[in-house]
Design a protein around this nucleic acid. Structure first.
Lengths: 205, 205
DNA sequence: GTCTATACATCGATAGAC
DNA sequence: GTCTATCGATGTATAGAC
């Protein structure tokens, strides 16, 4: 009778996931071009052919990791259809929800941020602008809503959107470079307080 | 008698500068790790030994480029000692001055931004935090000044600083990804109007 | 599906002539 | 100071056995 297969050659169902996690961590820490497939497979505890079996190439790994992580983000953004609530409340909820998601996917977001605002690093093409615009357009529509309703002062729509987006961005950027001292939901909330006081017609509190 | 030296071997005083410009452009567009010395020397129109003669290594090129560009920035930051003028005016002038500098050194700033917020790309160590803190601390001190004088509402100093810094950062980030549609001095000015209305005790205008 | 071993290109950096 | 030629290391990817 045949003996059970020896350990080194048995299929490893978790190998693919370990590879993805290792790749995200290394792409995030060192960048796409500076990360070698040798490092990825060593960290995942597999050999190179395993990587090339599960993914077509190093570029394939990158795109798979990025697209997988963006799914939840895109679902969240699609859920922000305007309601009857005050515009500042809706803006606040949108910013805080995306901030929560950002915290959970910190590594992936850092990778996204660096390739979106920075050099391409030889990484394969990905439609970063489409992802970014999802957030920008959501905020812009809510700002417009607040102006049309008279909740916000009549002013420069773009500047108003930039002010809100700036509060969100600076919170995430602070957390990327100072994870030991995060802004947190509360810090972002207080920053948004300032922005909304600048936007609203009645500058109460 | 000796004949004049043949063209291919004569010293080229401009070679060093062409190399630096090519390196900054390529590091900016492709990232440090993804840029090869072959590409740099080809774009500069020289051969590899010329690069290694003027700079010790690829890392030396990177540090030279970054440090040269930071000189003017550090001088500017050192010039922002608080005056008797209103705090919001001083904050506005600081933000706009750094924004002007940012526009002039766009490529270098993009490189800085990508390595500061993103992965290290195998690039040699540089004290990015020190440079960044120059701006943060300058803004924080002016916010503090405004609070102590009663020009700004008494509130969360960190959130107030983040709001101002966020307006500056989002303007520069917009220009990096949408250079065809820059925020401009005027756009940043209008965004700061909103922030200051949120900060000031008298919410006039 | 996973292994060992390797093909083949490109990398950063340098030797030595001029 | 600049050249040609090349070194050794490392890169991505794959062939072929099991």
């Amino acid at each position: 009778m045949s003996h059970t297969a020896s350990p080194p050659l048995t299929p490893d169902p978790a190998a693919r996931e370990r590879l993805l996690r290792a790749a995200i961590r290394l792409f995030t820490q060192k960048g796409y071009a500076a990360t070698s497939v040798r490092e990825i497979v060593e960290e995942a505890g597999v050999t190179k052919p395993v990587l090339y079996y599960h993914f077509k190439s190093k570029e394939g790994m990158y795109l798979t990791a990025l697209r997988d992580g963006m799914e939840e983000y895109q679902e969240l953004m699609a859920s922000f259809s305007p309601t009857d609530e005050p515009a500042d409340l809706q803006l606040r909820r949108a910013c805080l929800s995306v901030y929560d998601l950002f915290i959970r996917y910190m590594d992936l977001m850092r990778l996204f941020h660096s390739v979106f605002y920075g050099p391409q690093q030889g990484a394969p093409h990905f439609d970063y602008h489409a992802v970014h615009n999802l957030l920008v357009e959501t905020l812009r529509r809510l700002v417009r809503l607040g102006m049309d309703r008279g909740e916000f002062k009549d002013g420069d729509e773009r500047a108003m959107t930039l002010a809100v987006l700036g509060a969100f961005n600076i919170a995430t950027e602070n957390d990327m470079i100072h994870p030991e001292c995060p802004v947190g939901r509360e810090g972002l909330d207080r920053t948004l307080d300032i922005i909304f006081r600048g936007l609203k017609t009645t500058a109460n509190s």
